[in-house]
Lab assay of single mutants.
Amino acid sequence: HNLTITQGKLFFHYNPKLCLSEIHKMEEVSGTKGRQERNDIALKTNGDQASCENELLKFSYIRTSFDKILLRWEPYWPPDFRDLLGFMLFYKEAPYQNVTEFDGQDACGSNSWTVVDIDPPLRSNDPKSQNHPGWLMRGLKPWTQYAIFVKTLVTFSDERRTYGAKSDIIYVQTDATNPSVPLDPISVSNSSSQIILKWKPPSDPNGNITHYLVFWERQAEDSELFELDYCLKGLKLPSRTWSPPFESEDSQKHNQSEYEDSAGECCSCPKTDSQILKELEESSFRKTFEDYLHNVVFVPRKTSSGTGAEDPRPSRKRRSLGDVGNVTVAVPTVAAFPNTSSTSVPTSPEEHRPFEKVVNKESLVISGLRHFTGYRIELQACNQDTPEERCSVAAYVSARTMPEAKADDIVGPVTHEIFENNVVHLMWQEPKEPNGLIVLYEVSYRRYGDEELHLCVSRKHFALERGCRLRGLSPGNYSVRIRATSLAGNGSWTEPTYFYVTDYLDVPSNIA
Results as ranks from 00 to 15, higher is better:
residue 206 N to L: 07
residue 389 E to V: 12
residue 277 L to Q: 05
residue 349 P to C: 15
residue 442 E to F: 06
residue 268 S to P: 05
residue 445 Y to C: 10
residue 458 S to P: 04
residue 491 G to A: 04
residue 400 R to T: 06
residue 508 P to V: 13
residue 459 R to F: 13
residue 473 L to D: 00
residue 317 K to M: 07
residue 287 K to E: 13
residue 238 P to W: 12
residue 357 K to E: 08
residue 403 P to Y: 10
residue 244 P to L: 11
residue 277 L to W: 08
residue 390 R to E: 01
residue 260 E to G: 04
residue 295 N to F: 15
residue 249 E to L: 05
residue 374 G to N: 11
residue 377 I to R: 00
residue 333 T to G: 15
residue 436 G to W: 02
residue 341 S to A: 11
residue 437 L to V: 05
residue 492 S to H: 15
residue 360 N to E: 10
residue 460 K to R: 12
residue 500 Y to I: 08
residue 498 Y to A: 11
residue 222 D to V: 13
residue 480 V to P: 01
residue 224 E to L: 05
residue 484 A to E: 13
residue 297 V to H: 05
residue 377 I to F: 07
residue 506 D to A: 08
residue 247 E to T: 05
residue 376 R to H: 14
residue 298 F to T: 06
residue 487 L to R: 05
residue 261 D to F: 15
residue 325 G to K: 11
residue 256 Q to L: 07
residue 407 A to D: 03
residue 472 G to Y: 14
residue 218 R to I: 05
residue 405 A to P: 05
residue 260 E to P: 11
residue 486 S to G: 08
residue 233 K to M: 14
residue 357 K to T: 07
residue 214 V to R: 00
residue 313 R to I: 09
residue 338 P to N: 07
residue 292 Y to F: 04
residue 348 S to R: 14
residue 245 P to S: 08
residue 223 S to Q: 14
residue 505 L to F: 11
residue 246 F to C: 08
residue 502 T to P: 07
residue 436 G to R: 06
residue 383 N to V: 07
residue 214 V to T: 06
residue 496 P to C: 07
residue 462 F to C: 02
residue 288 T to W: 09
residue 447 R to K: 03
residue 384 Q to S: 14
residue 506 D to S: 10
residue 275 Q to H: 09
residue 371 H to T: 11
residue 441 Y to N: 01
residue 374 G to D: 09
residue 263 A to S: 12
residue 402 M to K: 04
residue 403 P to D: 10
residue 315 S to P: 10
residue 359 V to M: 10
residue 476 G to M: 00
residue 499 F to I: 11
residue 334 V to N: 05
residue 263 A to P: 14
residue 260 E to L: 07
residue 424 V to L: 08
residue 467 G to K: 06
residue 285 F to V: 12
residue 356 E to I: 07
residue 411 V to S: 09
residue 359 V to P: 10
residue 250 D to I: 10
residue 470 L to E: 01
residue 292 Y to G: 03
residue 367 S to M: 08
residue 307 T to A: 08
residue 213 L to M: 15
residue 209 I to E: 08
residue 425 H to K: 14
residue 269 C to R: 12
residue 495 E to T: 07
residue 456 C to T: 02
residue 251 S to G: 05
residue 311 D to Y: 14
residue 265 E to F: 10
residue 315 S to I: 12
residue 313 R to Y: 11
residue 496 P to K: 15
residue 263 A to F: 08
residue 222 D to M: 06
residue 477 N to V: 02
residue 246 F to D: 07
residue 342 S to W: 01
residue 262 S to N: 03
residue 445 Y to N: 02
residue 282 E to A: 14
residue 432 K to D: 11
residue 302 K to P: 13
residue 205 P to M: 05
residue 260 E to I: 12
residue 498 Y to D: 05
residue 422 N to K: 14
residue 276 I to F: 03
residue 442 E to P: 01
residue 471 R to C: 12
residue 332 P to D: 07
residue 381 A to M: 01
residue 296 V to F: 11
residue 508 P to R: 08
residue 276 I to E: 06
residue 474 S to Y: 10
residue 279 E to V: 08
residue 309 A to P: 09
residue 432 K to T: 06
residue 370 R to Q: 08
residue 359 V to Q: 14
residue 358 V to P: 12
residue 383 N to S: 09
residue 361 K to S: 11
residue 231 C to N: 01
residue 449 G to F: 14
residue 253 K to P: 01
residue 488 A to S: 08
residue 486 S to A: 07
residue 455 L to P: 01
residue 321 L to T: 10
residue 437 L to W: 01
residue 505 L to G: 09
residue 337 F to T: 14
residue 470 L to I: 10
residue 458 S to F: 04
residue 424 V to G: 03
residue 472 G to K: 07
residue 400 R to I: 13
residue 209 I to K: 15
residue 334 V to R: 07
residue 473 L to G: 01
residue 499 F to Q: 01
residue 490 N to W: 14
residue 481 R to P: 00
residue 252 Q to T: 13
residue 295 N to A: 07
residue 233 K to P: 12
residue 379 L to E: 00
residue 281 E to S: 13
residue 479 S to V: 11
residue 372 F to Q: 04
residue 314 P to F: 15
residue 437 L to I: 11
residue 365 V to Q: 15
residue 278 K to A: 15
residue 481 R to S: 07
residue 379 L to M: 06
residue 376 R to S: 10
residue 319 R to G: 11
residue 282 E to T: 05
residue 236 K to Y: 13
residue 448 Y to P: 10
residue 283 S to R: 13
residue 306 G to Q: 10
residue 398 S to G: 05
residue 357 K to Q: 07
residue 297 V to Y: 09
residue 362 E to W: 14
residue 371 H to K: 04
residue 256 Q to D: 11
residue 239 S to L: 13
residue 374 G to I: 11
residue 335 A to D: 09
residue 440 L to H: 12
residue 425 H to P: 01
residue 491 G to Q: 02
residue 283 S to L: 07
residue 264 G to M: 14
residue 220 A to R: 08
residue 247 E to I: 05
residue 469 R to W: 04
residue 299 V to Q: 14
residue 263 A to Q: 11
residue 321 L to S: 10
residue 312 P to V: 04
residue 285 F to S: 10
residue 262 S to E: 01
residue 442 E to K: 07
residue 451 E to M: 13
residue 461 H to R: 09
residue 332 P to W: 15
residue 305 S to H: 03
residue 288 T to I: 15
residue 414 V to E: 01
residue 393 V to I: 04
residue 286 R to D: 03
residue 290 E to N: 13
residue 237 L to R: 08
residue 319 R to H: 12
residue 488 A to L: 06
residue 385 D to S: 01
residue 489 G to W: 14
residue 317 K to H: 14
residue 369 L to T: 08
residue 407 A to I: 06
residue 247 E to C: 06
residue 302 K to V: 08
residue 295 N to G: 06
residue 387 P to K: 09
residue 363 S to Y: 05
residue 310 E to I: 03
residue 391 C to A: 02
residue 281 E to V: 15
residue 238 P to C: 03
residue 475 P to T: 09
residue 434 P to E: 02
residue 470 L to F: 06
residue 454 H to P: 09
residue 431 P to I: 11
residue 359 V to D: 01
residue 313 R to C: 15
residue 376 R to W: 14
residue 306 G to D: 12
residue 498 Y to R: 08
residue 301 R to G: 06
residue 258 E to F: 15
residue 399 A to M: 09
residue 505 L to Q: 05
residue 222 D to I: 04
residue 421 N to R: 14
residue 256 Q to H: 12
residue 479 S to D: 02
residue 342 S to T: 06
residue 237 L to M: 10
residue 240 R to S: 12
residue 434 P to T: 03
residue 499 F to N: 00
residue 300 P to L: 04
residue 245 P to R: 07
residue 379 L to N: 02
residue 392 S to L: 00
residue 353 R to Q: 08
residue 219 Q to L: 07
residue 406 K to T: 06
residue 231 C to Y: 02
residue 421 N to Y: 06
residue 498 Y to G: 07
residue 385 D to F: 12
residue 388 E to W: 09
residue 257 S to L: 09
residue 503 D to S: 11
residue 292 Y to D: 07
residue 330 A to S: 15
residue 267 C to W: 01
residue 436 G to T: 11
residue 255 N to L: 04
residue 402 M to C: 15
residue 478 Y to H: 10
residue 456 C to N: 01
residue 268 S to R: 15
residue 203 S to W: 03
residue 387 P to W: 14
residue 236 K to L: 13
residue 509 S to M: 10
residue 222 D to Y: 13
residue 323 D to V: 06
residue 382 C to P: 14
residue 320 S to E: 14
residue 453 L to C: 02
residue 283 S to D: 11
residue 429 Q to G: 12
residue 294 H to R: 13
residue 327 V to H: 07
residue 343 T to A: 13
residue 232 L to K: 05
residue 326 N to I: 08
residue 291 D to P: 04
residue 431 P to L: 02
residue 363 S to Q: 13
residue 480 V to S: 03
residue 208 N to A: 09
residue 220 A to V: 05
residue 323 D to L: 04
residue 228 L to H: 03
residue 354 P to Q: 09
residue 418 I to A: 08
residue 398 S to D: 13
residue 277 L to Y: 14
residue 235 L to S: 08
residue 438 I to S: 03
residue 302 K to T: 15
residue 394 A to T: 10
residue 339 N to Q: 13
residue 295 N to P: 05
residue 458 S to Q: 03
residue 232 L to M: 12
residue 321 L to E: 11
residue 457 V to C: 10
residue 450 D to H: 10
residue 287 K to T: 14
residue 468 C to L: 05
residue 239 S to D: 11
residue 263 A to L: 11
residue 405 A to L: 12
residue 305 S to F: 10
residue 433 E to I: 15
residue 422 N to G: 14
residue 380 Q to D: 13
residue 484 A to S: 07
residue 500 Y to S: 08
residue 291 D to Y: 14
residue 227 E to S: 12
residue 354 P to V: 08
residue 495 E to Q: 04
residue 458 S to G: 14
residue 272 T to M: 08
residue 463 A to D: 13
residue 354 P to D: 11
residue 499 F to G: 00
residue 431 P to F: 02
residue 481 R to G: 02
residue 447 R to V: 08
residue 457 V to L: 13
residue 326 N to S: 11
residue 244 P to C: 07
residue 355 F to M: 12
residue 398 S to H: 07
residue 461 H to V: 08
residue 277 L to S: 11
residue 389 E to Q: 13
residue 380 Q to F: 15
residue 402 M to G: 02
residue 497 T to L: 07
residue 435 N to C: 14
residue 338 P to R: 11
residue 255 N to M: 13
residue 293 L to R: 15
residue 471 R to G: 08
residue 310 E to D: 15
residue 369 L to Q: 13
residue 496 P to M: 03
residue 442 E to N: 03
residue 238 P to A: 07
residue 505 L to K: 10
residue 420 E to V: 03
residue 442 E to G: 11
residue 288 T to Y: 14
residue 418 I to P: 11
residue 231 C to M: 02
residue 438 I to D: 03
residue 474 S to F: 12
residue 478 Y to V: 01
residue 380 Q to G: 15
residue 477 N to P: 07
residue 414 V to F: 04
residue 431 P to M: 02
residue 338 P to Q: 05
residue 501 V to R: 02
residue 402 M to L: 07
residue 401 T to H: 00
residue 477 N to A: 09
residue 316 R to C: 02
residue 480 V to I: 14
residue 218 R to G: 03
residue 350 E to I: 08
residue 251 S to W: 00
residue 351 E to T: 14
residue 466 R to T: 07
residue 366 I to W: 02
residue 352 H to S: 05
residue 318 R to V: 12
residue 354 P to R: 08
residue 410 I to P: 12
residue 466 R to H: 08
residue 228 L to F: 12
residue 291 D to H: 12
residue 215 F to R: 09
residue 204 D to K: 00
residue 377 I to A: 15
residue 224 E to N: 08
residue 457 V to F: 15
residue 344 S to T: 12
residue 395 A to K: 15
residue 225 L to V: 09
